[in-house]
Structures are given as C-alpha cells and as structure tokens.
C-alpha cells in the first residue's frame, strides 16, 4: 500500500488546512468601525423565482455571524440549493437585498464580485470536478486563479489530499474515482484556499460514515480557524452530531433553531 494513501496524523501535521499566507486580508473576525464584528452574510426579505415561474424562496432573512457554524436542512426540492447559490453568488435574487462581507454584490463590479467569490469555498452537490485535470490540479484551481505559483501550493495541496485519503490518486482523473472519492476532492478544493465562508451542499452524501466524520472534523477545524461554515444536509444524524445552529427550509420559507448540545454518534 502506498504510504501517501495513509491518513496523516493531525498531531504531527503542521495543519490540515494549507498555509495561512493564502488568507485574505479581510478576516471574518475583522471588526467594523463601531468595534462590532460585521456579519459575514445578511440576507433581507429575499425572494427568488426562476424566469416567470413560482417563487421558490419567499421572504428569506438570514444572518451569518463570523466564525459561526450552521446547518441548513429541509426536504429535497425545498430550496436549499437555490439559497446556497444565492449566497455563493451563482444567482441573483429576484427581490430583497444581500450583504456579503459587508459589501452589496448587486452594487459590485465584476472584479469585485470575483474578489468576493474568492472568500467563499463551495462544495457543489454535483462536485463540479474537471475531468481533464488531475485530482491535484482540480484542488489547486482556486489557488491558480489567484495567481499563486505551482511551487507555492504544491505541498499544501498534497498534504490536504493525503489527509482526505486521496494521496495515492493525486495524478488520476476524477472520472476514474468513486462517488465518495470525488466528493472528497470537491471538499478539498473548497477548503484549500482557507475560505472565510465555507458552503457545502450535501457534502457527506456519498461517503461512508467514518469518512463523513473525518470530513466534519475538517469543517470543524476550518471553523475553529475562523471560517464561517454553512452545510446543507438532510442527514439528521450528521446535523445532530455537531453543536450548531440549524436553519430549516420548507416550501421556500426559512426557520431557525439555535444550537443545542451535540449528540455523539458511533
């Protein structure tokens, strides 16, 4: 068995998350002029409809505080993915206002929008992996688009991939991987640039429970380092395994349940 395929001990490892030099200057913990920490996201009275169809999200009000950890649950088709797309700037709301990292995306030019997106790591439901690139190159994409050189990120990307158990498939095409492996590649890509806001759409849907727990530990560590985490999942066991605020979306409407004690799962 390849040594590189072994999970790396968190004790001897420098960090699961690559070097802090990739951190953006605008930390989520940054305080506003009044001394208070500014929310990462503020959504007010958001409505969303596709073309002239029915409204899939109605009067959504959501505020994410810096460094918070929350789940978004709800049945399939309730609007979870649409809400996430609005947050990671893949869609524009039909009505209402959004503030992200203190900026209004609707008032930003395209370069500023790109800057905002760099602060968000996204685990897409369909993974969004590029089959013409290797696993390593897929994970490195968010770093490449910021202009970082190969030698600057090579070790970080390799360490991260080893930690998610993909050390032996660095040069493989994602097309040759199983669903669970693809999901881990997608997660590694989402966290590699140490995003200030991590959004994951059903991130543990295709992995075994043990890997699911490992990935949740990764999200938790990222959260401990300051990132705000929002995970959409309908896996109730996963949702209850971590003490986090829970938002539930049903029929396009959002409700909130504050964090309770985490339940340990075997």
């Amino acid at each position: 068995m390849s040594k590189s395929n072994q999970p790396v001990s968190t004790k001897k490892q420098r960090s699961l998350i690559p070097s802090p030099k990739s951190r953006s200057s605008l930390s989520p913990k940054a305080k506003s002029r009044t001394g208070k920490t500014a929310p990462v996201l503020v959504m007010s009275h958001i409505g969303m409809q596709y073309d002239n169809g029915p409204e899939v999200l109605t009067d959504i009000n959501l505020q994410l505080e810096p460094g918070s950890f929350q789940f978004l649950t709800g049945p399939s088709g309730a609007g979870k993915t649409t809400l996430l797309k609005l947050i990671y700037l893949a869609l524009q709301p039909s009505r209402g206002s959004v503030q992200l990292f203190g900026r209004e995306p609707a008032l930003c030019d395209r370069d500023e929008m790109a800057q905002l997106r760099r602060k968000i790591g996204v685990v897409f439901q369909g993974f969004g992996l590029l089959d013409h690139l290797s696993v390593f190159e897929n994970v490195a994409v968010p770093l490449r688009v910021t202009g970082r050189q190969h030698h600057e990120y090579e070790d970080d990307v390799q360490d991260l991939l080893r930690w998610v158990g993909l050390g032996s498939v660095l040069d493989a095409s994602p097309a040759t991987l199983s669903g669970g492996e693809k999901q881990r590649v997608a997660i590694a890509r989402a966290v590699v640039a140490k995003p200030e806001l991590l959004i994951a759409d059903e991130p543990t849907g295709n992995v075994d429970p043990e890997m699911g727990k490992r990935l949740m530990r990764l999200f938790s560590e990222l959260n401990r380092l300051g990132s705000t985490v929002l995970i959409a999942s309908h896996d109730l066991a996963l949702v209850r395994s971590i003490s986090a605020d829970i938002y539930t979306i049903e029929d396009g409407k959002l409700s909130f349940k504050p964090a309770g004690p985490a339940r340990r799962t075997k």
């Binding site: 370069d111 790109a114 800057q115 997106r117 968000i120 969004g128 013409h132 994409v141 968010p142 688009v145």
Partner: peptide, 16 residues
C-alpha cells in the same frame, strides 16, 4: 461550460 462555471465560482476574474 463546466470549466467556465468552476473558474467563475472560485473567483477567477473574467479577464483570466
């Protein structure tokens, strides 16, 4: 489209 979408959403500028 897959590549363009991914690059776009990870924060690649249009110019890139």
């Amino acid at each position: 489209k897959d590549l363009v979408n991914v690059l776009h959403l990870v924060g690649a500028r249009d110019q890139i």
